[in-house]
Computed example of a mutant assay.
Amino acid sequence: MTVTVRYYAAARAAAGVETEAVEVPPGATVDILLKTVGATHGNDFGRVLGRCSFLLDEVAVRDRELSLHDGALLDVLPPFAGG
């Protein structure tokens, strides 16, 4: 199945892309998806990913064992600063 991943700010810079379609097996979880993109983009991206929060179809992810569905959208949000 295909999941769209959107990266913001430092996550986008580390991944080198703004958005990508990622193929994962049926029954995949958010954790599996994150491991897949982490392996694709390397160590610097992995460090950024470790500090990020996530939205799955615009809902905050509290449990990385949450199952994905075909056509899902995962937003990768690094910590933001400012005021």
Rank of each mutant, 00 (worst) to 15 (best):
V59L: 12
R6N: 11
P25M: 02
E65P: 01
G16Q: 08
T4G: 09
R62Q: 14
L77A: 10
R6W: 04
A21H: 10
D63F: 05
D63R: 13
V59N: 09
K35G: 11
H69L: 06
A9V: 05
V3T: 15
F54K: 00
G16Y: 02
A9H: 03
A11I: 07
H41T: 07
D57A: 07
S67R: 15
V24R: 07
G83R: 08
N43P: 04
D70N: 15
V3K: 06
L34H: 12
L34N: 04
A10E: 12
H41E: 01
N43M: 04
M1G: 13
P78R: 08
A60R: 13
D44E: 13
V17Y: 03
R6A: 11
G71I: 02
I32Q: 15
A21F: 00
R51P: 00
P78G: 06
E20F: 02
Y8C: 07
F54H: 00
L33T: 13
R47H: 03
E20K: 08
G38V: 04
L34I: 12
L49G: 03
D31N: 15
C52D: 02
K35Y: 12
V22N: 09
A13F: 10
T2H: 14
E58L: 03
G71S: 11
M1W: 12
T4H: 12
T36Y: 10
A15E: 04
A15Q: 00
D70Q: 14
L56K: 10
F45R: 00
A15F: 02
V59I: 11
V30S: 09
L56T: 02
A15H: 02
A81Q: 05
D44A: 13
A13H: 11
L56F: 01
R12F: 00
D44M: 08
G38K: 04
A11M: 02
R47D: 06
D31M: 14
T4V: 14
G38S: 12
E20P: 06
V76L: 05
V22T: 13
A60L: 14
G50P: 05
R64F: 13
F45S: 03
V17E: 05
N43F: 06
A15S: 03
V59S: 12
I32G: 11
A13K: 15
I32K: 14
Y8A: 10
V61R: 12
D57V: 02
S53C: 00
A14T: 13
T29P: 09
A81K: 11
D44Q: 05
A21Y: 01
P78T: 05
G83H: 10
V48I: 08
L34R: 15
G27D: 07
D75F: 08
C52P: 02
V5I: 07
P78W: 05
L55Y: 01
T4P: 11
V5Q: 04
V61N: 08
V61P: 06
A13L: 10
V24W: 06
S67G: 15
R64A: 14
A28N: 03
G16N: 02
R64T: 10
D75A: 15
T4I: 11
L33S: 10
L66V: 15
